[in-house]
């Protein structure tokens, strides 16, 4: 092919070539985008993992002054049966002086009849600092404020699960839970 021929060929049908180039690139981009979505989304929680995200707990089994620990979807939760003294100390705190101000009542969920079961406190079991599981009454160390102590970097929580001392920024969160009956609660993530 001579030089002249090639150049004329190049100019002939230029629009159609452009159209094919753009159409090819656009289709490929859409395909790549769709594939990327599939390959990224497959790493998200699978349906069965999501389904295993709530649990019913019989709170009548929790010993007075003690707690039980449950795992929901691999995450730890504390269900604590507080003594009268522990409830009193949780209620007598000056809320304004707290790092993450919350009254004890705000950290409880009413039973079906609308009243509060102050004896039972339900909180997340992972320290709000870096996610260690604090120790509590069963491990013989409840920290300076009678609730929980996180041995990782020394966070102290009170008997309402509120942060009182140490590096953790906020209170142990209260999970989403409700009373199914006076003795059974349903906790979900």
């Amino acid at each position: 092919m001579s030089e002249a021929q090639t150049t004329t060929h190049e100019t002939i049908d230029e629009d159609r070539r452009d159209f094919i180039h753009i159409a090819t690139a656009a289709t490929a981009a859409a395909g790549a985008g769709a594939l990327a979505y599939v390959f990224i989304d497959q790493m998200n929680a699978a349906s069965d993992t999501k389904a295993a995200s709530s649990l019913e707990v019989d709170i009548s089994k929790v010993p007075l002054g003690g707690e039980i620990r449950v795992l929901i979807g691999g995450q730890p939760f504390f269900i604590r049966h507080r003594t009268e003294a522990e409830i009193r100390s949780a209620e007598s705190v000056d809320v304004g002086s707290l790092r993450d101000p919350q009254t004890d009542d705000e950290r409880l969920v009413p039973m079906q009849d609308g009243s509060l079961n102050r004896a039972i406190l339900v909180t997340s079991g992972s320290c709000t600092h870096l996610g260690c599981v604090p120790v509590g009454p069963a491990q013989g160390n409840t920290g300076d404020y009678g609730g929980w102590y996180c041995p990782c970097h020394g966070s102290h929580y009170d008997t309402s699960g509120r942060i009182r001392k140490g590096p953790a920024p906020s209170n142990l969160p209260v999970p989403d839970y409700r009373y199914v009956s006076p003795t059974v609660i349903n906790i979900s993530l």
Binding site: N44, A46, I72, L130
Partner: peptide, 29 residues
């Protein structure tokens, strides 16, 4: 692993969803 993935959770706005995406669920399992 919990501490390290917890660091990713510290990122603002997107941290928690990236963390759940990496772990493939609410926790390391």
């Amino acid at each position: 692993a919990n501490v390290i993935t917890g660091l990713i959770g510290a990122l603002p706005v997107v941290g928690d969803s990236i963390k759940a995406w990496l772990m493939g669920g609410p926790s390391i399992g």
